[in-house]
Write a protein that binds this DNA or RNA. Structure first.
Lengths: 204, 204
DNA sequence: TAGATTGTTAATCGATTAACAATC
DNA sequence: TAGATTGTTAATCGATTAACAATC
């Protein structure tokens, strides 16, 4: 059975935090402490553990290493998913920087851009290709995810290309609404919208 | 009375879309068409209009220009909010590029970075300052919002600085959880988390 | 009038959290 | 035992959507 979306988000955060924590501190952690570090409610932690099917001890809390292993298993962090970045401007570079270090279960396997300056260059060890190599490169590298950062006017064309290449998930970092066919998962990442929201709710 | 969060997000999207649309097409639009362009349910549009207190015509739909004006009013798009970008790496640059063009009700008024290469330089007409000028610059420019893109290890220190400077809203683009005092609004923008979510739900 | 649309209420769904029994 | 924590159910809250009356 599938986990709720919000639970998946939090599991990912628990994992990230505890991966750092596990070498520094005690081998056990209480829901209260984990919650405080993430500014959430302890009940959230316990409920997520329940959904995960993971048990703690009433006396000591949760076994950090076992928990990290369990979360990683559930999120399939052992199956390294290959992703590509489409559009390699500042935003694309920022994304690459963020994931080049490793530690995340998503592997950037290729870059695509239209600029002759970038094409055939290598960044952080990852090669940048022209758009017309997309079909070949995506097939050869078993790429399943795409992070879309290209300029707004290209988005529709690029989307159709990606879908035709058999991509199963797209992270849309353009501020352009995207209409995807059944079976392709979409994650919206719309900075313009969120900034206006921030502004609206930050009224002094 | 305050609008629901999701409604504010959608209002921002209606506005963006219709600003383009208003010069191209008919002066009226149906909820169905607006919804289709954003891949949402038409009922959403009509309900948001209701919450906004905006009426359409049964025969012709909504008056595009009036609607844009109404949404802009509600989102206070006429009050230009000043924001700063803290951390001017690739991510900071990407954010600046996105907003330098104008058209959004948020104005980037200053950049902050620790790198001597960037400090005192001007990018897209916006000056980059060292972190220790922050208090002065934020006060002088009436900056109320901060977009945080600095490296993870600086985040806590920078946060305290920003709060001390009287910032009322922070967009956190680092993957570091932030704990803010009452009265400072927080918007999380966590790429690592969302990418894992995408990966989880994109299982073939 | 017939058909389409808006405006609004009620039902549904998902996420959060309060409450509390069970356990160490 | 007393006190703290986990595990789980039930209540609450916010967002979405189904249903339908009112209107053009």
């Amino acid at each position: 059975m599938e986990l709720p979306k919000k639970t998946v988000e939090r599991l990912s955060q628990y994992r990230r935090l505890l991966l750092k924590y596990q070498y520094l501190e005690k081998p056990f952690i209480f829901s209260r402490d984990l919650a405080r570090m993430l500014n959430i409610n302890p009940v959230h932690v316990r409920r997520d553990m329940m959904l995960l099917g993971f048990s703690g001890s009433h006396a000591r809390g949760y076994d950090v290493k076992k928990l990290v292993k369990e979360v990683s298993m559930k999120l399939e962090c052992h199956i390294l998913k290959n992703a590509c970045i489409v559009g390699f401007g500042h935003l694309g570079r920022a994304v690459l920087d963020m994931f080049a270090g490793g530690g995340t279960p998503v592997n950037i396997a290729a870059l695509f851009d239209t600029s002759p300056k970038a094409i055939n260059q290598t960044f952080e060890g990852i090669k940048c290709y022209s758009m017309d190599k997309m079909e070949q490169v995506i097939a050869d590298n078993h790429i399943k995810l795409a992070i879309l950062t290209s300029p707004a006017d290209d988005v529709e064309k690029v989307k159709d290309l990606l879908v035709a290449c058999g991509i199963t998930g797209i992270m849309n970092m353009t501020s352009q609404p995207l209409d995807l066919p059944e079976g392709v998962h979409l994650e919206e990442f719309d900075l313009k919208t969120l900034l206006i929201k921030l502004s609206y709710f930050s009224k002094a």
